[in-house]
Amino acid sequence: LGLGHAVLMARPVVGDEPFAVLLADDLMLGEPPVLAQMVDQYRRYQAGILGVEEIPREHSTRYGVVDARPWDDRIYQVSGIVEKPKPEDAPSNLGVVGRYILPARVFHFLEQTRQGAGGEIQLTDAIAHLLNERQVLAYLFSGRRFDCGDKLGYLKATIAFGKLHPEVGADFTRYMDSICEPQASAETLP
């Protein structure tokens, strides 16, 4: 029934504690890890944290997009959030990308949220209601995101993480370099 419904199913386990939501199709590469960066921001501000990145406006229909103003280094104060708006209706170019730290209070709003965009219970709708009670911040994380829900994004992630792998990274990098040389052709590929 949508991401909001899936998050609501975790309520018995989470209880009244803040919690993180990680969407598996968004693979993050950062140092320190993106979720660790977000936990640091949560500890500093004691507010919900939404992982965001700058997106092309024409891609707004793929994301929850925040209405936010700069507040601190890489931090934006969120005043609104819209699920998959048309480019002309997008409040900014900051799209939420699969990482959230939320207070348990969001469960209350998820229980009351009706089906929204795509006929699903949207987490963004519950966050929009949460904004009436509490501060929520957007964090422009340091690192790189791979959209593994997209075939090309999945392949890019495989290459990036393969090159960093402690056991095979060096050999894999040499292999990738060898097949990417200008003189390589389809006939000479191993």
Rank of each mutant, 00 (worst) to 15 (best):
K156C: 09
L140R: 08
F141T: 12
F146E: 10
D125Y: 04
R144L: 09
D147Y: 08
L152G: 12
Q135S: 03
L155M: 14
N132W: 00
T124V: 07
F141M: 09
G153C: 08
V136R: 00
V136W: 08
N132R: 11
G153I: 10
L152V: 10
A138Q: 03
R134P: 01
R144W: 03
Y139G: 10
Y154C: 14
L152Y: 12
D147T: 00
A128K: 09
K156T: 09
E133T: 05
H129N: 04
D147F: 07
L131E: 11
A126Y: 00
L137Y: 11
D125G: 03
R134Q: 15
Q135I: 08
G143I: 15
G149Q: 03
G153Q: 02
H129M: 14
L137M: 06
A126H: 03
L140C: 07
H129R: 01
R134Y: 07
L155R: 08
Y154N: 12
N132S: 15
H129L: 13
E133G: 01
K156N: 07
D150I: 10
V136I: 04
G153T: 12
R144E: 03
I127H: 02
G149T: 05
C148L: 13
Y139R: 10
L152E: 12
D147G: 15
D150Q: 11
L137A: 04
L130Q: 03
H129I: 01
V136E: 00
F141E: 01
R134F: 13
R134L: 10
D147P: 14
E133W: 09
Q135C: 11
E133Y: 06
R134T: 02
K156S: 07
R144M: 06
G153V: 14
T124L: 06
F146C: 03
D150W: 01
L131Q: 01
F146V: 06
D147W: 05
K151R: 11
T124Q: 10
A128C: 05
G143P: 04
N132Y: 01
G153P: 07
L140Y: 08
C148Y: 05
K151C: 07
L131D: 01
N132V: 02
Y154F: 12
D147L: 08
L152P: 03
C148P: 05
Y139W: 07
T124A: 09
A128W: 07
S142M: 13
I127E: 03
E133M: 14
A126E: 02
T124E: 10
L131R: 02
E133F: 09
R145D: 08
D150P: 06
I127A: 05
R134M: 15
A128P: 00
L152A: 15
A128H: 00
L155G: 12
G143A: 05
R134C: 11
Y139D: 02
H129W: 12
